[in-house]
């Protein structure tokens, strides 16, 4: 073998080696497999649960679909990720142009909201798609591991996930007798009440803590099956022992029911077991820190339940 051939094969080997360094991760996600650079530095996230993932291993995204309202990224996250991110618009319709201008090397998108623009996102940067909006709590924890792998921080993430599971177990141990109660969470705006069904993120969290549900459990995972618009008469059929409300408006639609005899007769209302929590934290956020906030709220509620 001539020296020339040796050199060529050596260069070829080196190139293969370098390529494998740059493209370390093949990440399997909702829409296929994406080759992700080894340790992405410029990450854009298009749902709040992905901020939760990055914050839990101390990584700051360059761009966030924050609905153009920076305070939707709560202090618990900004304490870790800082305030330097660029808003790429709403989660529903993020701006491709702003995203491209940020030169990202990884985009994390949501299955429900962004599947239709997956191709366009992939042209901007390697994109992975996870089911945040219509996924349940166990799925959201599994997604943490996928994101950990994608950003090259698997070990750190697994440690955080293990700590989170221990924290949740602790909360579960502290909440006794949850199995005696039917608990129902819903958000209400000016025009309606939307109950989060057992298949939704919050529904699955309540189930994890041992609460029962009176809603019909569907198999589907469409938006309408997760978040069910509910009239007062329908609510009286569900009739939970504990009603947890997140109000996005003041006065909210449910406030207009205050004087209705049927509302007053609901088990939760009669026994004084209607609780208001921060709608944003429960219904928009998901992930580990978010679930721990929810757990803390639930613990407080269980201390007050009559």
């Amino acid at each position: 073998m001539s020296i020339k051939k040796y050199l060529t094969s050596a260069v070829a080997l080196a190139m293969v080696g370098m390529a494998s360094l740059v493209n370390a991760g093949e990440i399997t996600h909702e829409l296929g497999v994406t080759n992700v650079p080894d340790a992405p530095k410029r990450i854009i996230v298009l749902e709040f649960s992905f901020i939760d993932a990055l914050a839990s291993v101390g990584v700051s995204p360059v761009g966030i679909a924050d609905d153009k309202k920076r305070d939707r990224v709560i202090p618990a996250y900004t304490d870790v990720i800082g305030n330097e991110w660029v808003s790429v618009g709403t989660r529903k319709t993020p701006s491709l142009e702003i995203m491209a201008s940020l030169n990202p090397d990884l985009i994390i998108a949501d299955k429900t909201r962004h599947s239709a623009v997956y191709e366009a996102l992939s042209e901007i940067a390697p994109t992975i798609v996870l089911d945040s909006l219509s996924g349940n709590y166990p799925e959201s924890v599994e997604q943490m591991s996928i994101i950990g792998k994608a950003i090259g921080k698997s070990e750190q993430m697994e440690a955080r996930v293990a700590a989170h599971k221990a924290t949740m177990k602790d909360y579960i141990a502290q909440m006794k007798n949850t199995g005696n109660y039917v608990a129902q969470f819903g958000v209400t705006n000016k025009t309606g009440l939307f109950l989060h069904s057992p298949v939704s993120y919050n529904g699955s969290l309540l189930e994890l803590f041992g609460f029962k549900s009176n809603m019909v459990k569907t198999n589907g995972d469409t938006y309408d099956e997760n978040y069910v618009e509910t009239s007062l008469e329908q609510l009286s059929v569900v009739n939970p022992d504990i009603l947890i409300l997140g109000k996005y408006a003041d006065p909210a639609h449910t406030d207009s029911w205050a004087e209705e005899p049927l509302f007053k007769q609901l088990t939760a209302v009669k026994n004084g077991n209607v609780y208001n929590i921060t709608a944003h934290n429960w219904s928009r956020l998901r992930g580990m820190l978010a679930a721990e906030l929810t757990a803390a709220d639930l613990l407080e509620i269980m201390k007050k339940v009559k």
């Binding site: 529903k92 705006n189 000016k190 009239s231 996005y248 639609h253």
Partner: peptide
């Protein structure tokens, strides 16, 4: 409808021909 979820939901609530409430 493409604006913020809450606003979109409110507009849909008012304009989708629903008399259930």
């Amino acid at each position: 409808f493409i604006l913020d979820d809450d606003l979109a939901r409110e507009v849909i609530g008012w304009t989708s021909g629903n008399i259930s409430a």
